[in-house]
Nucleic acid binder design. Structure first.
Length: 513
RNA sequence: GGCGAUUUAGUGUAGUGGCCUAGCACGCCGCCCUCUCACGGCGGAAACCCGGGUUCGAGUCCCGGAUUCGCUACCA
């Protein structure tokens, strides 16, 4: 790398940070860290109409949760601030004037209504070299008239004057040289007097230049306007320090067509946002990865793999691994359907690394949700339960499905299991089993198992049927960890009570034919 | 419509002219383990968008078409 790597993540605070934006931030971060560079966070709030309170804090908190570190920017300080575009009006005004003075831009008074009218009158109307001569702007009006209108407080915009007949080349690190004819570009609005704010394009170029950005890594939706940005660098005579561009592929719907939206998440049952979001205007709540039980390391890992690979078959990687391996050489160019099923799987290995006691703490709120007071159990008990079943879960909340019987007695018995394992003779055998369990000198798993198994074999009972009837009585269905580990934890009294209850409650509706 | 990007199993991807009888992972199916479910281990089904060309040889290079995605705002 020929110069210091400085990248930026520059979201708009128009709502919760979309998971696609998170991936963009992640790739920026990985690239910066891999190259020993800096990562900036800039807030692009140049559209005063779309500002949403709380969105900025949400962005900062999201990145923090995910471990995407910011070196400079909103909420983190730095030498190149302010990093909030709404606080940089003076800077933009100066550069707009520079473009105006150089004749690279002009003032236009056309109202939104007039533009709308022009667009309906002419099917493919575009504000450019072919049409600007017939519009209300400083190129067609006398200077005194322009001045008079401005002094009268007439609203205007500043448009970039695109010269036609140019082949503009965008050198994209991922896609190679992309060439576009300047004729198809329109005279983009750079500044609006209405709110004294630039549009994205101007603010973006000025800020990236002033903040010394070396690589602009953003979503593919920006590729069509990249030529405009190149032209702006030229107009400012900043081409020597123009950043490299990387346009990342987009995240698409898991099924069907189009880009990933919040509705897809609702429809298919996965979050589209890193953190839960409470919309201040509608009051709607959108689910987040954090609240849904995902570990940040898993989200990062899974997101990194959506459009990038390490060049070998490694799937599970820590942030440090990702930083070490990351490069655009292994990025794909096509949009990726959002593989949320793989995201679930990705949580599994990370969850396994957490020790049972800690997971037990995370399990307590879930127990409460199901009407179980965790205070009724010792931490040791809950931790043992977790230790027994955590290997089979992807999320802490799955613990309930796997281990609810440790906290509540079966309220029903799986009909299929009854049919298969509970015969008319079973109650008698279960009563014998109770006697055996009562007679056990030591009820621990290690000590209890062999005597019970011996009792089954010495009576020539069917091992599978007896053990499963036992399990059915205690658990309610034929699932769960090793049977004697369960009974050890439940204790002798509880185990025997459950068998009694089962004998009373399991009635065979119809005699087997 | 115009412009640009894009295209390997259901999904995410490996693959940069012979090592591809196309690899890995998720998901799916089966087997093993076992008192059960899960985990795990083993195995299976499943893909080079289409058509031309270049070449001794193409998933890999070229051309055309199609596909999908994006942009086409005083939004980013």
């Amino acid at each position: 790398m020929d110069r210091e790597v400085r990248v930026r993540f520059a979201p708009s605070p128009t709502g919760p940070l979309h998971i696609g934006g998170v991936r963009t931030a992640l790739y920026n971060y990985l690239f910066a860290r891999h190259n020993g560079g800096k990562m900036l966070l800039r807030i692009e709030d140049t559209d005063s109409n779309r500002f949403v309170p709380g969105a900025e804090d949400y962005i900062i908190e999201s990145l923090k949760w995910l471990g995407i570190g910011i070196d400079e920017g909103v909420g983190h300080g730095g030498e190149n601030g302010p990093y909030r575009q709404s606080e940089r009006r003076d800077i933009y005004r100066k550069y707009v004037k520079q473009l105006l003075d150089a004749g690279r831009a002009y003032i236009a008074f056309d109202t939104p209504e007039e533009l709308e009218a022009a667009r309906t009158a002419t099917p493919n109307f575009q504000y450019d070299a072919s049409t600007r001569g017939s519009m209300r702007n400083s190129l067609t009006m006398p200077a005194e008239e322009v001045k008079r209108l401005i002094d009268n407080g007439e609203k205007y915009v500043v448009r970039f004057k695109i010269e036609p007949g140019r082949a503009v080349v965008v050198d994209d690190l991922l896609r190679g040289k992309v060439t576009i004819k300047s004729d198809i570009l329109d005279d983009k609005v750079l500044y609006k007097s209405a709110d004294d704010l630039p549009t994205y394009h101007l603010a973006n170029i000025v800020d990236d230049h002033l903040m010394g950005i070396s690589h602009v890594i953003r979503g593919e939706e920006w590729l069509p306007s990249a030529p405009l940005h190149v032209l702006l660098y030229e107009a400012f005579d900043w081409t020597d320090s123009m950043p490299h561009f990387v346009h990342l592929p987009l995240l698409l719907k898991p099924d069907g067509k189009g880009k990933l939206s919040k509705r897809d998440g609702d429809r298919l049952g996965f979050p589209v946002f890193p953190l839960e979001w409470h919309d201040p205007i509608s009051g709607n709540i959108s689910s987040g990865y954090r609240e849904s039980g995902y570990l940040p390391e898993a989200v990062v890992n899974f997101l990194a793999l959506l459009g990038w690979n390490p060049g070998d078959d490694t799937e599970i990687m820590s942030m440090d691994d990702l930083i070490e391996k990351f490069s655009f050489d292994h990025c794909s160019r096509a949009g990726a359907k959002f593989a949320y099923e793989k995201g679930k799987w990705c949580n599994h290995p990370y969850l396994q690394e957490i020790d049972a006691a800690k997971i037990a703490e995370m399990f307590k709120p879930i127990l409460r949700e199901h009407g179980v007071n965790p205070e009724d159990y010792s931490d040791e008990y809950i931790t043992k339960v977790v230790g027994m079943v955590k290997g089979r879960i992807n999320f802490v909340k799955d613990l309930w499905d796997q281990a609810s019987f440790f906290f509540t007695r079966p309220d029903s018995y799986d009909p299929k299991a009854i049919k298969k394992r509970w015969s008319p003779e079973t109650p008698a055998i279960m009563n014998e089993l109770i006697s055996q369990l009562e007679a056990l000198p030591d009820f621990s798993s290690a000590a209890a198992e062999q005597p019970i198994l011996d009792w089954i074999t010495s009576n020539s009972y069917h091992m599978g049927n007896v053990m499963n009837a036992f399990r059915l009585a205690v658990v309610g269905e034929c699932k769960g960890p090793h049977m004697f580990d369960i009974t050890e934890l439940l204790g002798r009294e509880e185990t025997i009570n459950r068998i009694h209850t089962a004998i009373e409650r399991i009635k065979l509706d119809e005699p087997t034919v």
